[in-house]
Amino acid sequence: MSAHDHVEGQLPHEPEKATLEARNKILGFWLFLGAEVVLFGTLFAAFLALRHNIGDGPSASELFQLPMVFAATMILLTSSLTSVFAVQAMHQHNKKSMLTWLIITIILGLGFLGLEIYEFTEYVHEGHGFTTSAFSSSFYTLVGFHGAHVAFGVLWIALVIGQVFKKGFNVVTAPKVYISAIYWHFIDVVWVFIFTVVYLMGKVAG
């Protein structure tokens, strides 16, 4: 413990950018995010092109429940705030507070996932299966891909927390916290477009 305290006492102001390796990791991660933008772009393009092809299945406005979408949006938005608090605690070299915010972020992420699983089950019961129509296939692919990203983010942050516990809070683990927080914000940014384009525009189109 005292050894850790010693290391923490010597942490630089921005421990996530202290080494060249860490700065390269962050740059590399941004390049990855550029590719993620393109990935979600293709899914959005497919969804936008096919969203009116409902075949015999239910339409978007029959299916979507705005209160549930709003709840999911609030959960994810709040989790984005808690993950930025974790980065802030990291900048203040406050390991305990950082880990607490990361754990809250994970719990909110799990809440979002639970809501999404419940939502998809409801839709399937209402006759909106994956192969019902071009609309349903592109909907599940787009929203499901985002859900998979949330699940991956939860797993990732959990592993980062485990590493901080095991290896301590230092210039090697700090960039991992920072990058996983950026990833989490990116998931929230994609969700902004999903609730706008998929749910709200789906409701408007009638």
């Binding site: 740059l27 995010l33 550029g34 772009g41 393009a45 092109a49």
Partner: peptide, 26 residues
């Protein structure tokens, strides 16, 4: 600067793809 360039490039590709998909299908 690089992250901003990367994301703008990504957004440019996305806008192109969305217009292309809508044009192609409709």
């Amino acid at each position: 600067l690089f992250p901003i360039i990367g994301i703008i490039a990504g957004v440019f590709v996305v806008i192109t793809m969305v217009i292309m998909a809508l044009y192609w299908v409709w």
